[in-house]
Design a protein around this nucleic acid. Structure first.
Lengths: 195, 195
DNA sequence: TCCCGTTCTTAATGTACCTTAAGCACTTTT
DNA sequence: AAAAGTGCTTAAGGTACATTAAGAACGGGA
């Protein structure tokens, strides 16, 4: 099993010796997820967190009109989970699917707790991951409230150019809180004024 | 100085012995903040995090039309900071004011880092605080995108009844991403259909 | 290879919410 | 106590977005 990428991700924030590394990798399970395959459904308990080794996953929320509201996209080197269900133990509010054939390393919540006991440095690692995630979501809230649809789109293309290649416009629109039709109008307007 | 409330807050997630407690409290500085007084402005570096001992603080973002977009309210027993500036070291994007005469305990970023070194348990404490904050913001993003203005308002009144007494409607409207006029219309409609 | 489903586009119509403005109640300043 | 500011309400008119619908282009499955 190729742990190099995930270990490099960990090494961004903490330094592990060999024993700690083995302790960590022994808790990981690798899972292949086919395109369109689902790894979490609303109502289930989300008891693990996934590191995306390859491919793309998407988390989304189905509202009462059954619209898909994209919550996050996760490509290579991102972590993804239903953090609400994972944290509180309540049923999941979101669905998580693969947008391409993907490979993820999964860590069970119980194993993570025991890892915290054995290698307390991981508290630091996940403190940093959670803090960065909080920053990202807070900036998103601010932008949702204070920017127009066009501004949100321009922002997204700058901030996440990688996603533009790999995620459909429909899904980007749902992440940005607008309909795909309106996103199409915005893009066509930008195309004209851009030339 | 009365540390009982903040220590009780810490004790929700980690257990400290006497020495650790002293180490922690020695790093705190108490600050009184008068109503309308500002403790952080956009563009400054935010190098501390505040625990609200009494009163109410509000964080808000000024957009380019100079509208105040409320980001969060913090009453007794909440933590508040510009997490973006605090984390990245970039200039603050938000302002933080007191809505009432308030008392806060402040912890400097450098002191917090040294606290992590001396009492690693605090990594756990702040991991949990950050994780809970992430959950809160993510749920907020989901609701902003998928709910109508009226639904967001009803949700807010249920989730944060304490804020309703202490925060003006204008500020609640700005937190919910609508104008105060429209919130007033919603409330008047609810008053009628409620009877 | 054709077909079927999905995505993207364009356009007409509809609506949730904003803007502006005015009046009243309340609080703060002088 | 008057004056000036601020918050809440109501209403008319305006706009950014949604909805519906239909056609073109692409991609996956038999």
């Amino acid at each position: 099993m190729d742990y190099s990428a995930i270990l490099k991700n960990i090494a961004k924030h903490i330094t592990l010796d060999e024993k700690e590394t083995n302790c960590f990798t022994s808790l990981l399970s690798y899972r292949e997820v086919k395109k369109k395959e689902n790894i979490l459904q609303e109502g289930q308990l989300c008891r693990n967190i996934s590191y995306v080794h390859s491919g793309v996953l998407r988390a989304y929320y189905l509202d009462k009109e059954c619209n898909e509201n994209s919550i996050m996209f996760a490509i290579n080197d991102w972590w993804i989970t239903d953090i609400y269900s994972f944290t509180t133990g309540n049923p999941a509010v979101m669905h998580i699917d693969a947008l391409e054939n993907s490979g993820v390393f999964q860590l069970q919540k119980d194993d993570l707790e025991s890892l915290f006991g054995q290698v307390p440095k991981f508290e630091r690692f996940f403190r940093i991951i959670m803090q960065n995630s909080y920053v990202r979501e807070q900036l998103r809230s601010i932008q949702n409230i204070s920017l127009s649809a066009e501004e949100r789109y321009l922002n997204f293309t700058q901030k996440y150019p990688d996603f533009m290649q790999r995620v459909s416009q429909k899904q980007i629109a749902s992440y940005l809180g607008m309909t795909p039709e309106f996103l199409s109008v915005i893009r066509s307007k930008l195309r004209k004024t851009g030339e």
